[in-house]
Amino acid sequence: MTEPVLEIRDLSVHFPVRRRGVFGGEDGLVKAVDGVSLTVAREETVGLVGESGCGKSTLARAALRLIEPTAGSVRIDGIDLTTLSGEELRKRRRAMQMIFQDPYASLNPRMTVFDALAEPLLVHQIVPRKAIPGEVAGLMAKVGLARRYVRKYPHEFSGGQRQRIAIARALALRPTLIIADEPVSALDVSVQAQILNLLRDLRRDEALTLMLISHDLSVVRHLSDRIAVMYLGKIVELGEAEQVYGRPQHPYTRALISAVPMPDPVKERQRQRTVLRGDPPSPLHPPEGCAFHPRCPYATDACARIVPPLETQPDGRRTACIRLDAIEAEPVA
């Protein structure tokens, strides 16, 4: 593997929670991200999956220092962002751009497409002022927006087109890395496919490095080289996309994959599903030991005591589960 573009090491984000009530109440600590290490190599796409509240978006925001990490380091192109401040931070942060779920919320409703794309070029002096119209036209072409739309406002576009504008805006700064946080979750299936294809083409043509965050495993699998699965602030499984999706090891990954309904009635009837008990736990009161043990069909007493380390497996992936041998031996659905 080439040298990593992004190197997240032991990153933690803890939010203090104050409870004020008639009886005082105790202060709590939500460990939204708890000691996560993850690297993204040049031109690689890493998918980050997990259910709501697992910390995947917090991890991305902390990587950009949009949220201040509690501990750990984030290196982009070898430079530790967590030690920088002011002008230097802004300059380095430019190398990472983010695309959000709702492009309507992330675009200024009073700026035309031209303004939205010209602004970052101007602010960061990417190209000389008189080259801006040409650069804007080039960006629009890259994301498949017709040139005649250049003077239109966000409300005049459909959701998919707005997401194209948001992607063009991210590309404007020629970033080393793009973090896409649920980029297609708000879109209809037919439009979702357009945006996924666009990201795919850009990855190839622009040599993009991408971190793709989604709750939808099929979306992540479609684009990612590697997949990281998060549960309650920690990575529980990390490996090649086909390993994780095709032969999941961690009981949570197994359950997650088996819970996704497949658009095939025959397969749906035949397959054995692992339906989990209960809801995801409250991050304010995480279970002792392995955070997944109260919902895990394979859990033993030891799981309630031991925090499983993320260990490298024979096939190269990393999995945090102390029961792997037993699970592999008896392949219960």
Partner: peptide, 23 residues
Amino acid sequence: QALLAALPGARDRDAPLESIPGF
């Protein structure tokens, strides 16, 4: 037909998704 082909996971991972043009 197009809706089914547009689903990620329905096809080979390396093939582009069949997107439906327009809206």
